[in-house]
């Protein structure tokens, strides 16, 4: 049976009919046109589908769409409401991506990390991003960008 759910998506109140089997990731990508969360493994291992649920990072492939009723969902699209973020500029400068597929997930995780810990240590950065897999960069350019970014912040 389909349920009607109400939730906030990227700052906007939305209503939608979802089935019990629909995952949040499926619904975002196929019903809401939000394509920055990617399908990488679909079982919570890779982090390419990372989004914010009530401000905390979650893997949207591990959540049933029904579970977000009454909650607040933010994707990379929502974080850029006022344009490209300074951390994104820094990541462009530092080549913190290659193929770009895992990048939205990394940015959402980075955003959440910096919100919680504005000046993280290298270990805290690594720990904060350890649930996001990247096969291209070797991670160093991502970590370096965040270190460089927070240095200027502090």
């Amino acid at each position: 049976m389909k349920n009607k759910i109400s939730f906030i998506l990227n700052g906007e109140k939305r209503q939608l009919e979802v089935g019990p089997q629909d995952t949040l990731l499926e619904v975002l990508r196929t019903k809401l046109g939000i394509t920055s969360p990617k399908v990488g493994c679909d079982r919570g291992d890779c982090g390419a589908c990372t989004i914010l649920l009530n401000g905390d990072t979650v893997k949207s492939c591990l959540i049933l769409a029904n579970e977000i009723d009454g909650q607040e969902v933010t994707t990379l699209e929502g974080l850029m409401e006022h344009g490209i973020l300074p951390i994104q500029e820094k990541m462009v400068e530092k080549n913190s991506f290659q193929c770009g597929y895992c990048t939205p997930g990394f940015l959402v995780s980075t955003h959440a990390l910096l919100k919680k810990t504005p000046c993280p240590t290298k270990e805290e950065i690594k720990e904060g991003l350890a649930g996001n897999l990247c096969r291209c960069t070797g991670y160093t350019p991502i970590i370096d960008a965040i270190i460089d970014f927070t240095k200027k912040n502090s």
């Binding site: 990379l76 699209e77 994104q88 770009g100 990048t103 939205p104």
Partner: peptide, 15 residues
């Protein structure tokens, strides 16, 4: 290709 990829604007087949 930086801005396209860093903003999630870059499209892949399944997108």
């Amino acid at each position: 290709d930086g801005k396209e990829k860093i903003t999630g604007a870059a499209k892949y087949v399944d997108d």
